[in-house]
Design a protein around this nucleic acid. Structure first.
Lengths: 339, 339
DNA sequence: GTGAAAGCGCTAACAT
DNA sequence: ATGTTAGCGCTTTCAC
């Protein structure tokens, strides 16, 4: 029933080795033979069996991509860029969504190993460092982190300059006259991104001689709900901020939702700025002053790093050399959500 | 170097067959043996080789998902729902983006066949009917269309009731007093969705005794740009609509962008309604009256259909029975973009 | 209940 | 330039 290489070989009157050579673009085939084979291949609608080929070649041309959730625009862009660049290089990507659940992440890491992917691009939950080190040390699977690092795991990464991006943002807010700038950042336990954004915030305040005030610092989880929740907390407290800096777009959208419910006018009553540009920012009822990230590049560069490693001639060398960490710069966008 | 089933067998002091039995939950293993094997498996961090297993079992537990572009929220939801339901059933999904390019679609169909996926969920470009029929007739790969059909290809599908959804929308607009309702629909050549939405529009007009006017009918491509372009055309023409019905969210966002540029007020100067709810609709400067689609369900139901077919005992029966087409109902949301 | 061995569809080393 | 054949890592049939 299934058309395999034997069927093709028989019909073409040559051996399977020759078919294989044609299919793998070996030069050691006479032009006449090649033509004949290709004709038969086409006539039978034969497609090579990737499973068998992978097993034999020990090469799958597959990489895994683990993100949090494609429903977020940020991750969707990464998925798209990774796919684009992967395909251009003759590889395929397998997409996994962790939902920020370390168990799911672990499950997917194992799955991808089992699938013999040649590399993994990981937007990490921050846990699973033991298993990650196991992959790095005991297998040939290359790993590149994207957007954030994992404690105690040394490997290549492509990041955004969160520290300086945030510093520039807070400096701007201070210059505009804001005095009680609150921040809603991510979970500093799990995310190096959240840590750096908080650091940038604190550093700017310090330089301006403004004292850190814990009432103005909230730790969210980068989701809409936590932007909503902590903005509400901030605005219902006795000591209120005059401006809120929010560490990502999803939380910022939660924030402006609740601000409208509370009838708090932006920017008259409160300034709002965020890290990461919301999708269709200009169509929002309040386009947000924000730090735009080179998200597509983040994914594209990660794939390039990864494939370079995979295809490197000198695998010994690769194991030894220390991790390459690429840091991309951000872009400042001023809208009317700040005065 | 690589830990394979032989390594495990040797260390456990049993044959590879026994290891395999344990790993496949065969009942014919003594409890003591099973325990012993599992211990060794764990201690070696052994993960089964999915490639080898697939080749031998002729079962990959993989399905392909082909959509247009994850960057669109509509497709992102489908990707998410398909992954969710796929994983729950013990399968994995391979994501492919066609960018609406039939050549890319064909390439991916071939790739997925080569990967021995057991089924494909396809949001079709509308071309490639010959190859699709080849897959259906000559391979064991099951196919389910999602969102739209392909001419001359009979297979299972999960659709949205575009006709009635649109009818309800246009009926509403007429009842609200609009008299020159324009439509920007998709490409009726390629998309059954666009055809049905246009049909619903025409049918409502007819019932209300309003004559079809070609000046008010535009054919876009479901992308932001075409919403922008055709809205501009409509509003710069001599004969202008008093309301525009737009066939999807992306084009609607393009539309409201240009309407603002042209200083056309919604809904005072012009009513706007669309099929499909924009992401964060309520945060837009003009939340749109729209038809909400059960997108997550679309994907979830497609996976269920597909896996049912894949796992059906009676494969002969499957081949014979006529395609199942599930049509999901829409939801009407009234906002202030219509008077 | 367990082991030996064949074979899934392909590639690559070796032979001619 | 082409063919023969072993074997990638696993599962499954057949013996015992």
């Amino acid at each position: 029933m299934k058309i395999d290489i034997n069927t093709v070989a028989k019909k073409a009157g040559v051996s399977t080795a020759t078919i294989s050579r044609v299919l793998n673009n070996s030069t050691k085939v006479r032009e006449v033979t090649r033509k004949k084979v290709l004709k038969v291949v086409k006539s039978l609608n034969y497609e090579i069996d990737a499973t068998a080929r992978s097993l034999r070649k020990k090469k799958t041309y597959a990489i895994g991509l683990i993100v949090e959730n494609v429903l977020s625009y940020f991750y969707a862009i990464i998925v798209k860029s990774v796919e684009d660049v992967t395909v251009v290089n003759g590889y395929n990507s397998i997409l996994c969504n962790t939902e920020r659940d370390p168990d799911k992440e672990l499950k997917y890491l194992k799955l991808l190993k089992s699938y013999n992917v040649e590399g993994i691009i990981l937007l990490p939950t921050g846990k699973n460092s033991a298993y990650l080190n196991n992959l790095i040390n005991n297998t040939n699977i290359k790993i590149v982190f994207i957007d954030r690092l994992v404690k105690d795991v040394n490997c290549n990464a492509v990041l955004v300059d969160n520290l300086n991006g945030t510093k520039k943002a807070i400096d701007y807010l201070i210059k505009r006259g804001y005095e009680r700038i609150a921040i809603i950042t991510g979970d500093v336990e799990d995310s190096s991104t959240a840590v750096d954004r908080l650091k940038g915030y604190l550093s700017s305040l310090k330089e301006a001689g403004i004292k850190k005030d814990n009432r103005l610092i909230k730790f969210g989880d980068y989701r809409w709900e936590s932007g909503y929740k902590y903005t509400k907390e901030l605005m219902e407290a006795k000591y209120k901020p005059d401006c809120i800096f929010i560490s990502n777009a999803n939380m910022a959208l939660g924030a402006i939702t609740v601000l409208r419910e509370l009838n708090i006018n932006i920017p008259d009553d409160l300034g709002v700025m965020c890290f990461d540009k919301p999708n269709y920012n200009d169509l929002l009822y309040t386009p947000l002053t924000c730090i735009e990230q080179p998200i597509y590049d983040l994914g594209a560069k990660a794939v390039n790093l990864l494939i370079n490693e995979i295809e490197s001639k000198d695998q010994q060398e690769i194991k030894k050399k220390k991790p390459e960490i690429i840091t991309l710069q951000t872009n400042f966008l001023i809208k009317n959500s700040t005065k």
